[in-house]
Design a protein around this nucleic acid. Sequence first.
DNA 1: GACCTGCTGCGGGTTG
Length: 726
Amino acid sequence: MPRSESRAFALLHPSIQRWIWKQGWTNLRDIQEQAVRSILDCNRDVIISASTAGGKTETAFLPAISDVLRSEPEGISILGIIPLKALINDQYQRLEGITRDAELPVFAWHGDISASKKSKALSTPSSILLITPESLEALFVRRHPEIRKVFRSLRRVVVDELHAFIGTERGMQLQSLMHRVDLVAGKKIPRIGLSATLGDMSKATEFLRHNNSLPCDVIESKMGGRELMVQVRGYTCSPDDQDASDESVWQAISGHLFKTLRGSNNLAFANSRQNVELLSDKLRRTSDLARVPNEFFPHHGSLSKEIREEAEDRLRKQSLPTSVICTNTLELGIDIGSVKSVAQIGSPPSVASLCQRIGRSGRQEGDPAVLRTYIREAEWGSELSLAEKLRLRTVQAVAMIQLLVKGWNEPPIPNRLHLSTFIQQLLSSIAQHGGLNPAVAWENLCGKGPFSHIDVEMFKHLLKVLAAKEVLTQADDGTLLLGRKGERIVEHYSFYAAFVSPEEISIVTDGKTLGTLTASFPIVPNSFLIFAGKRWLIKSFDENRKLVQVSPAEGGELPKFDGGGGAMIHDKVREEMKVCLESESFIPFLDGQASELLSQARAAYLDMDLANRKILSSGSKSIFAIWKGDRVCFTIFLMLQKENLAVDLYGPVFTVNKITPESLSERIQKILSQKIPAPIDLVRGLENKGTEKFDYLLDEKLLNAGASVGCLDIEGAVRELKRICG
DNA sequence: GACCTGCTGCGGGTTG
């Protein structure tokens, strides 16, 4: 469409129109046209959802800046909340280009920015501020005298990578911070969320403004019918000879990666940092043996910023062919240009994540997106367990790809209590105001704020618990103040993040930091280490400075990294797996071996009559499968455990020891005939309930309350148990 | 089987 005919274009400020002109754009994209109207109407929130990074930032900021240029704000006019420092730096440069002519100053604000630049940002009127949630938290705590003035004429809050926040502690913190910004500004500031395409957009609008008190427009860009080329490749190893043959499977996978990825830019998602190191090392040594330059580089969260940026630069510049083996570090919007293909080692953690990863491939017009998935299974044999015979990894990968093609992906997970982050926000609010009336605190955070699931009774109980631990204290007039311990917590710089990080040891060679290992990894001088895709000898370990010196070597051993929890599989994925197992239809995207694996799985399913025979007998054990997500499975697991059954859960497969199918069925019927236990009764006996940052300040009662919300599905569990006995 | 993200103020040294 010629620009003169675009009414949206005409609505933009002349200075923004000039910028668009200079870019040589011939028209505004579909989502940009729609966004201009929604954003210029200042009484609503807007979510802009698109699968690739291209254009989302401009879509939000061009109209938002237009709006600012027509008003005359005194303090910050647009607040951009962005999850990564690297993304802030990216966006800063792009926005500077847009606003240079308009003389609208842009400021980047995060931990690596100097204090003098931060002061300048606060004193420059009408500016755009790009900030991390943690730095915004610090702003509330440290600069509270100025904060009212700073946000007085704020016109817009923009949240980048909205999907990365939903359902997390950090996301809860973000919701609370946005609400506190509204409180300080004295009005509802319209919000814009930039997001990857999510399964259910209603969850995203609920997240963007917790009480939906402003209307929210959702602007979605269509996938554009991009061609997708997929292959699932199967690999087997003998279960008797686990170590040696495991080696040969990895050799085969890395051999195929070497052959297919060399000569172009690619990403390989390896699911764990250890697998990233393993494959990078194999690929580098294969390159050495073949006497060709190495094109494979590792990328994960424990590598130093320098090493990661080097890999990102190589990808972006496209001067030398580069394949990066990574964890989900390269899933978010960091600019790495386009890659030819995406490899996925093992089944992906979720369909949503797979969707993001594929979005990295074939980003140039007309290019297909290419995905190769590599799956390892045990070699066929009678000694295989039911779970192994069902080839769950292969079937899960197939199910996830089928769902992706159908356009489905996981909606954000339901809200937890987030008591840890509630404590943080309560302490932060008290620090911000220098003391807070309890009724006002409850009203701000819970009554009208995003912690609406915390009722007055629970709030009062929490205050008592925190007072007993000297985190809080009360003045004679009832005002909440920070206690002795509370002050120590808030004063330390680690307070601003909603999450904790384990203590780390730096790995250094020749004065250069390669990255870090968690302190629990045993460091033995004179032993070997594989790290950052290279091999090292550990020369010395300075325990006080938490510093390991290494030098290049030939030998090597893979490091262990402390992992956080795995991904939760959604109901829909397991349902699709069941469909796949019961079907006879040909799956065109499997290679020979993967096809054979699927045939074995379907034969085993049929052979054991899993569709009809609900509980199987295996020696002295009873076995059954539940084709529902991890929440249902975990709930059933707890219900059986509560009845003192020796139950074991692996994926969707339950093994109950020392019981026949008949008596297990009777026991389950007994459970169903009794009063169904409340979630809080099921989690009572669990250990390690307090996994979040400030959970250590809670008592048993609050820990149980926290654990019972969001991670159980009693209704689903009862329905499945009835089916098992039916 | 198993990821990722973030951080202030102050004191001391160096450079213009």
